[in-house]
Amino acid sequence: MQKQLAELMTTLNKNQRLSKLAISEKGFLFDPETGQSFTLNYSGMQTLNHLKRGESLEDTAKHLADEFKIPHDTALNSIEAFLIQLGRYI
């Protein structure tokens, strides 16, 4: 699982894939490489913005846990699940 996630992060970061994604403040996401567009919910938007800046999963989870006042584990778990979803689309 951890290995899979690490590979995923590497793939997503290859050729600055993540940082090229355009995310509006309303959660509209456009992938300039594929032309596909998406809607993110608020936590999805926050997560992706952290990841785009190159933050680690751990750090991103910390931010979310603080912002929503939820346990760190909960945040980390759902970020990992989100990452897998992201890997399918991007």
Binding site: A22, S24, K26, G27, F28, F30, S37, T39
Partner: peptide
């Protein structure tokens, strides 16, 4: 353009 489309989609 993208902003117009986004507006229709999101708002």
């Amino acid at each position: 353009d993208l902003p117009a489309f986004e507006s229709m989609l999101i708002d």
